[in-house]
Simulated assay, not measured.
Amino acid sequence: MTPEERLAALGLELPEVVAPLAAYLPAVRTGDYVYTSGQLAMVGGKLEVTGKVGAEVTPEVAAEQARICALNGLAAIASVAGGLSNITRIVKVVVFVASAPGFTGQPAVGNGASELLAEVLGEAGRHARSAVGVAVLPLDAPVEVEFVAEVR
């Protein structure tokens, strides 16, 4: 199955690329690589969940937010690569988790993004990853995810 077919089988579709919140591009291609800016879990132009993970946001909700971030990241990559089928590998994913003091479940939150990438891209979606806790993210988002992808 193609990535587009896998996405449809999951009942998902690529959203519009999220408009930048400041002076940057959502994704930049250089040679065979695409680097994305940090992707928030925007749906229809809105951030539906805010707060710190481990306080106002449960880890389970945060993992779902990371999944939405990954879908937005795929849209950004596809926009400069000519479609999902031109992604040959997700190389690196960095997951930022706005964490309440003492919260240490960042890797489980990041799994929301990682699992979606593997579901859509198969083996090409498996990647290196960092998941780090931070004090605050733009718009009080609980999760932000950025990507490096190899493309054809």
Rank of each mutant, 00 (worst) to 15 (best):
E60Q: 12
G82D: 01
P3H: 01
A22G: 05
S99T: 04
T58N: 10
R89K: 12
V17H: 02
A113W: 03
T30P: 07
L116P: 07
R67T: 09
A70P: 04
K52Q: 13
V49E: 04
A135V: 15
T88I: 06
G102Q: 10
A22S: 02
F103P: 13
V136S: 13
D140N: 05
A19V: 14
G125S: 15
E115C: 01
M42Y: 08
P107G: 14
V120E: 05
V28P: 08
E16H: 04
A118Q: 10
E5I: 14
T50W: 09
P3F: 02
V34Q: 04
E123C: 02
A108V: 15
Q39Y: 05
V17S: 10
G83M: 06
A128R: 12
A19N: 00
C69R: 12
P20Q: 10
E150L: 14
L21Y: 00
V143S: 04
V34K: 00
G38N: 07
E146L: 12
T58V: 08
H127L: 10
S99F: 06
T50V: 15
E150Y: 05
P59Q: 03
E144D: 07
A23I: 07
R89P: 08
A19Q: 09
V34T: 03
L40A: 08
F147D: 02
P15F: 08
A118K: 14
E119N: 07
R29Q: 08
A76N: 05
I68Y: 06
A131P: 05
V80C: 11
E4M: 09
L12I: 01
A118P: 07
L14R: 04
V91T: 11
A27G: 03
A98E: 09
E146A: 10
P138R: 05
V94F: 05
E56A: 15
A118G: 13
A41L: 12
H127F: 04
A66Y: 01
R152P: 06
Q106T: 15
L7M: 12
A63H: 05
E5P: 02
G133H: 03
V97P: 04
A128M: 15
E5G: 12
K52R: 15
K52H: 11
V151T: 10
Y35F: 13
M42F: 12
G38D: 11
V43Q: 02
E150T: 13
Q65M: 11
V49D: 03
A22L: 02
V134Q: 07
M42H: 09
Y24H: 09
M42N: 13
V94E: 04
G122A: 02
E16D: 12
T104N: 13
S114A: 11
L71I: 09
I87Y: 02
L47T: 14
T2H: 12
A131I: 05
R152G: 09
A55S: 00
E56D: 09
Y33W: 11
V34F: 00
V91R: 02
T104L: 14
T36L: 01
A118N: 10
E4Q: 09
S85R: 03
V143N: 01
P3V: 06
I77G: 00
V18N: 01
R126T: 13
L12N: 06
I68V: 13
E16C: 10
T30E: 01
A55M: 03
T58W: 06
T50Q: 15
A131N: 06
V109M: 13
E5D: 14
R6F: 01
S130M: 08
E146H: 10
G125W: 11
G54Q: 15
A8M: 00
E5Q: 14
V18H: 03
E4I: 10
